[in-house]
Amino acid sequence: MAVRACRIEELPPGSRKIVPGGRFGIGVFNSGGALYALANRCPHDGAPVCLGPITGTTESERSYDAKWVKDGQILRCPWHGWEFELATGKSVASPPKNIRTYPVRVENGWVIVDD
């Protein structure tokens, strides 16, 4: 079913909306012009993950050389800090435990999510 989330001008880059849809609500994000829609439920413990901060993450080749990467592309759960890629819902840590994602598009100025 298609959910009409909001007008596109209500969702400028860097903002988000939590809208009804799916079983747990859906977080719709505008990340630098790209739109993403994720289920508002952390696969770990059921937290409203889409309320968490948008941040980056760390990568490392060997001990003690942490690099800051993917700034603005990581959704961090507000409860336990699990990290997910905003674009795919995939967990940064393995083994994978991913957030469900939904197709999202803009039609006649409306942000539409297919839940």
């Binding site: 993450t57 800090g81 940064v92």
Partner: peptide, 15 residues
């Protein structure tokens, strides 16, 4: 705990 705080020690690649 590791899963939640992984980003502090990114050189730990596995559980």
């Amino acid at each position: 705990d590791w899963r939640a705080i992984r980003s502090v020690t990114p050189w730990v690649k596995k559980t």
